[in-house]
Design a protein around this nucleic acid. Structure first.
Lengths: 325, 325
DNA sequence: CTGAAAGCGCTTACAG
DNA sequence: CTGAAAGCGCTTACAG
């Protein structure tokens, strides 16, 4: 492996001068710089970032915790974060926690000894009990995609989930619907409340035990049978919306003629469904970028700025219509 | 940040002794070790892996290239690789290439200066043109989930995709089917050929422009209309299988009564479909573990072992039956 | 079993 | 604008 010293010898300068041209921190005379760059090219020199990290204290690496990468939402967040990081010259150390506190704890220890520059935690993964550990992390920790109550002391950039629920409720109301059922995941109570406030406080909610298709299908069937008068359904999750559509079909009700369905965070490609769903779309890209910026800008012990709430928007699709079509 | 030196002072030894107890490389007298451990605990000492990496040359970090994390197959691979890595005390640097050679090249440069211990590349991402760069990487590069012809010179652990196609063909044959259409992604020609050899060489294949639901649906509709006599369909991808099921339904054909559908690599939870699909299941976990082991065991300049081919298996579901039900 | 020395490859003030 | 020195926090032979 060729080092800075070898480049220096080749160019007839000292290694500090090589360092100066590589980092650009100190101006170097053009002629010298040219010699150095030539030597770098000839030798195929690549700076050793490990050595640089030891000297500077920055690894230009940030950790990201997500519960899983198998859910479309988190898959998107991972890619958005990666993009934002790459633009800033950083790399991504990925940790999937599987909502397992012990696993998260182990990863945190790993990131600590590895000296990442920051840690992003996406999704309130039932990790709140382990948060005290985070409080005295050596690097900034920023929380994002956080639907549960925000723990104090951490910078957070998340989505206004209640507002998103409200968008869905308002949409159905404007179409003239009066009765809707809610198909929700247990973790989505904020979306549910937002919907209820905008639509009707007493809208019945049916909880799917897991945000999975089968579970959603069973719950949706039960919900639609229990409330035959409902002309609309709000699903708090893309998979649940797909399941609801399927359930409606199984019951002989066509969407949107006999039932309007609005989803929360449908995948853009409509991967799961045949036609486009009317959906509350979450600003994942914006959230990821802001989280990265915040993480990289926050000094280690700084007092966290106020939580940032990004607004989702409603994208109309083919799954909603006035009651009766 | 507390360092080894401070621990040493506290314990009344030199830092080399602390190093010895931390690494366990050299035996230390029990009494001394106890004093050192006590000092470590009192001071909350955490070894600095950056410094260790500089001294040892190993970062205990491995890079993983996947085309995307949004496809269920790769999402699973990422989590399996992460698990295998964690068990071995390594961390995961994730790079999604988006099938973009330039992007991959940039990431490769990043990993090089960062001195990862190894790089895993999952999926022949049309990166073959960029492979020469990999040939003189400073760290072992192992290829996995590689359906295209394997470039020489690299260790590879992949799946016997042709065998998987064969399993699907044999299954349909044994059920008594005589005509089947194939719904395939352009990159899946190996699976297609495997199927044809086991089923019928002249089975018509319809290519979906992308492994996405909409594209699959259109192609499936066209395929089923073009071959009304087909009693079975082989989809080379889970999303395509879901689309095919949908297409059959749209044409008024029930699955499996009027049409048997076998998928290749359906997601275990059957996320995309209502009932379970008969599917060729890929050994992702085994592949990921072997790839990690290979990457961590292969000395930098070693001659690569022969490619390893792992066998998929067929898991019967509710989507196949003898022709006519 | 424990200590003194050199080194991993860089950066950072600090003189010239 | 360029060079000499010290240091980042560890590990690795090598003596004792």
């Amino acid at each position: 492996m060729v080092t800075m010293r070898e480049v220096a010898e080749r160019a007839g300068v000292t290694k500090q001068t090589v360092s100066n041209v590589v980092t650009g921190r100190v101006a170097v005379r053009p002629a010298t710089e040219a010699r150095v760059r030539a030597a770098i090219a000839e030798l195929g020199y690549v700076p050793n970032l490990v050595a640089r990290s030891l000297a500077t204290g920055s690894t230009r690496t940030v950790g990201l915790f997500v519960p899983t990468v198998s859910a479309p939402f988190y898959a998107d967040v991972v890619e958005e974060v990666e993009d934002a990081l790459e633009e800033r010259g950083h790399h991504l150390l990925l940790c999937t926690t599987r909502r397992d506190g012990e696993r998260a704890r182990r990863h945190l220890a790993g990131l600590t000894s590895r000296s990442v520059d920051a840690l992003l935690i996406a999704g309130d993964q039932g990790l709140t009990g382990h948060l005290p550990l985070l409080a005295d992390a050596r690097f900034p920790v920023v929380l994002c995609a956080w639907e549960a109550p925000v723990p104090p002391g951490f910078p957070v950039v998340t989505i206004d989930y209640a507002y998103g629920g409200g968008l869905a409720g308002r949409h159905l109301r404007e179409l003239g619907h009066e009765r809707a059922v809610i198909l929700a995941s247990p973790a989505h109570s904020v979306r549910v409340e937002g919907f209820r406030r905008a639509f009707r406080e007493d809208s019945p909610v049916h909880l799917a035990p897991a945000p999975a298709f089968r579970a959603g299908l069973d719950t949706a069937l039960a919900a639609l049978r229990a409330h035959p008068g409902a002309t609309a359904l709000f699903a708090t999750h893309d998979v649940l919306a797909a399941a609801a559509t399927e359930a409606a079909r199984a019951l002989g009700r066509s969407v949107p003629h006999d039932l309007s369905v609005v989803a929360h965070d449908d995948t853009p490609e409509g991967l799961l469904s045949r036609s486009t769903l009317t959906s509350v779309v979450l600003p994942k890209r914006e959230m990821s970028r802001q989280a990265v910026d915040l993480a990289l800008a926050t000094p280690p012990g700084a007092v966290p700025p106020a939580p940032r709430l990004l607004l989702p928007r409603l994208v109309p699709g083919a799954s909603t219509a006035p009651p009766g079509g």
